[in-house]
Write a protein that binds this DNA or RNA. Sequence first.
DNA 1: GATGAATGAGCATTCATTCAT
DNA 2: AATGAATGAATGCTCATTCAT
Lengths: 205, 205, 205, 205
Amino acid sequence: MAGQKLTKRKLEALKTREKLIKAARELIQEQGLDRTSISEITKRCGVANGTFYTYFKRKEDVLSAISIEIFNELYAKALSYEGSFLQRLEFFLINFAAYIEESGVRLCQEWVRNTVNPKLALNDDDKVKLDFDLNLLRSLIASGVEQGALRVEVEVDALSRLLVELLYGQMLCWDFSDGTYSYKERTKEFCEKFLPLIIKPYLKE
Amino acid sequence: MAGQKLTKRKLEALKTREKLIKAARELIQEQGLDRTSISEITKRCGVANGTFYTYFKRKEDVLSAISIEIFNELYAKALSYEGSFLQRLEFFLINFAAYIEESGVRLCQEWVRNTVNPKLALNDDDKVKLDFDLNLLRSLIASGVEQGALRVEVEVDALSRLLVELLYGQMLCWDFSDGTYSYKERTKEFCEKFLPLIIKPYLKE
Amino acid sequence: MAGQKLTKRKLEALKTREKLIKAARELIQEQGLDRTSISEITKRCGVANGTFYTYFKRKEDVLSAISIEIFNELYAKALSYEGSFLQRLEFFLINFAAYIEESGVRLCQEWVRNTVNPKLALNDDDKVKLDFDLNLLRSLIASGVEQGALRVEVEVDALSRLLVELLYGQMLCWDFSDGTYSYKERTKEFCEKFLPLIIKPYLKE
Amino acid sequence: MAGQKLTKRKLEALKTREKLIKAARELIQEQGLDRTSISEITKRCGVANGTFYTYFKRKEDVLSAISIEIFNELYAKALSYEGSFLQRLEFFLINFAAYIEESGVRLCQEWVRNTVNPKLALNDDDKVKLDFDLNLLRSLIASGVEQGALRVEVEVDALSRLLVELLYGQMLCWDFSDGTYSYKERTKEFCEKFLPLIIKPYLKE
DNA sequence: GATGAATGAGCATTCATTCAT
DNA sequence: AATGAATGAATGCTCATTCAT
C-alpha cells in the first residue's frame, strides 16, 4: 500500500499520455505542427478531443514534451561516453547531430520555428536549451582543463559558444535543405577537418 | 534613356509597391508577420485592402520582397570592399551580421521561420539564399587563391560551408536570444578569436 | 426501449441541429442561399457561429439536409395512398408538385442550382435523387402491372423516365417563372389532359 | 464613304468582341462560369482586363451573349425545315436537344443555374426564352392547324406547354447526369415512343 | 477603344480551448 | 479521467467593376 502510487487508473493515464505524444510526434513529422490538429492527434489515439487537455495545457506543449524526450536521450547518451577529451567532445557533437537527424527534419524544423518565435511564449524550456547546450559544452571543456588536456588559458566561454553556434548553424542549414543530406555526416566532416584547427592552440603540449 | 518605359502610371505603381513593402517591414518589425494583418499594412499606406494583392500573391510574399531588398543591399555593400583577402573576408562576415541586425530581430526571426518551413512553399528564392551565400563565400575564397593569398590546396567548398554555417549559427542563436545582445559584435569577436585559427593553415607563408 | 442511447446531451445536440436546419430553411426561402450567411443562421438559433460546423461540413450541406427532410416527407406521404393504380399515380405526381411548391420557390431554385452544378461536388444524395424518383415511379408502374392494371408489355423504364422528366420540366419552368403560377395546378392539369393519353395504350382493356 | 459604317476600327472592335465570347465559351465549358474570372477571359484574348467591360456590362452578360448565339443558330435551323407537320415538330424537338448537347453540358448547366436564379437579375432575355420557346411551339402547332394536319379543337397552349416542359425536363435530367448520356438520343426516343400518343388524338382523321 | 491600377465589400471557415456532464 | 458539444475570434483573399489616362 505504501508507495503504491501507480494505481491501475494512473497507469492508464500514463499510457494515454504516451499515446498522445507518440501520435503527435508522428503527425508532426508527417505534416508539421500547424497542419496537425488536436482532433487528428486524439483520433489517432482513440480518445476524445478534450482528453488532450488533460495532459497538455496548450497545443505547443506537446512539442515541448517531444523535444524533452529527444533531448534527454541525447544528453544521457552523449555524456555517457568515456575517453579522452577530444574523443568525448567529438562524440558529443556528432551524437547531437545524429539524434536530431534521427528524430526527423520536420520535427527539427518545427522546433526551430517554435523556438525562434518569441510571441508564442512557448515553454521557456526550449529557449533555455541554448543555455543548456552551452553549459554542457562549457563543462566538457572545463573538464578538459581539469584533466590536463587543455591549457588553463583557454577561453571556455568563447570556445563553447563557438561550438554551439556551429552545431546550430549546421542544423539550420540542414533544415533549410529539408534534410536532403546528412546532418550527422556534415558534423563528422567538420570534426575531422576543422575541429582540430580550432582546438589545437588550446591543447597542452 | 533607352528602355525608358516608365510612364507616370507605372511610376505610381512602383511607388505604391514600395510603400507597401515599407509599411509591411515596419509592422513586421513591430509585431511579427502573424500579428500583422493585410488591412493594417494597406491602411498605413492609404490604399485599399485589395491593392496589396495587386503586388503580392500571398501575405508571405511581402516578406520575400523585404528579404530581397535587405540582402541586395547587403551583398552590394559587402562585396564593394577593397583590400586584402582577409580584410575582405572579415568585412563580409561582419557586414552580413551588421545588416541583419540593423533590419531587426523580429524580421530575422520571421525570415528564419518562413524559410525553415517547407510547407509554406514560399518563394524559393529564400531557400536558394543559402546557396547564394555559399557561392559568395566560395568566390571570395577562390579570389583569395587567385590573388596568391591562399594556398591552392585549400578546400574551398568545405571552408565556405563552414563559414556560412557559422554565420547562420550565430544568427540563430541571436534569434533565440530575441536580440538581447549584438549579432555584429558576436561575429566581430569570432573574426578576432577564431577566424585566424581556421584560415591560417591555408594562408600562403 | 432498446437502443435508447439518447443521453440528455445527445438530445440537446439533435435539437440544435434541428434548429439550425429550420433557421436555414427560413432564411434561404427568404433570401436564397448566397445571401444567407452562416452567422445569420446561427444568430437566429442563438448559438455560436462555429456551432454550425459541428453539424455541417460546408455551408451547402445544410441545403442537402433540408432537401432530405422535404423529400422524406414527400415520399412518405405520396406512397401512403391507397387506391387504384391510376389514382395512386396521379396522387404521387400531384403531391410531388404540391410538396415542392409548399416548401417555396426559392428553396426549389436553390436546390436546382446546387444540384445542376457538378463542381460543387455537393452531397451526392441530391444527384441520386433523380434515380430515386425514377425508381419510385418504376415501382409504381411495376405494381400497376402486378395488380393487373397495366399490360405486361408496358415499357416500364421509358414510361417512368418520361414521367420524371415531365415532373422535373414542370418544376424547372415553375422555377423560371419565379413561382408566379401554381406548380401543383399545372401538374394537376397535366394529369387531366395528358396523362390518360400517355397511359391509356398500356392499360389493360 | 456613305454607309461605310465599318471602319477598320469598328471591325477590330467586332473581332475583339467575338474573341471574348469565344474565349468565355471555352472557359465556361471547361470550368463553369464561377471559376472563370474576367482576367482569365481577357488574358486568353490578349487584351486588358478592362476591355471586357467595353463589350459587356456585367460578367453574366457574356453568358447571355453566348446563349443568344447558340439559340439563334438553333431556331434558324430548326424552323428552316420543310415537311409535314409531324416531321417539322419532331425536327424541332430533336434539334433543340442536339444543339444544346453540342454546345456542351457545362454551358447548359450554367445557363440553367443563371436562369433559375432570380437574384442575379440577369438579362431578362433568358427568362423570356421560356416564353419564346413556348411561342415557337405554339406557332408550330398553329401552323399544323392551318395546314389541316391538326383538328381545330386542339388546345394549342396546353400542348405547346407540355412539349416545352418535356424538352426542359429532359434537359434538366441531362444536366443532373453531367451529360453521361445523350440528350438528343433521349429526345429522339421520346419522339418515337410517346409523341405519337400525345399528338394522335389531335390529328385530323 | 484600350488599358490596368485601384477598389473594397464580403464571409466562410478553422480549430484551439473550455466546461458541464 | 474522459467526453464532445459549444465556443467565437480572427482575417486572408477574391474578383467584378470602375475610371483616369
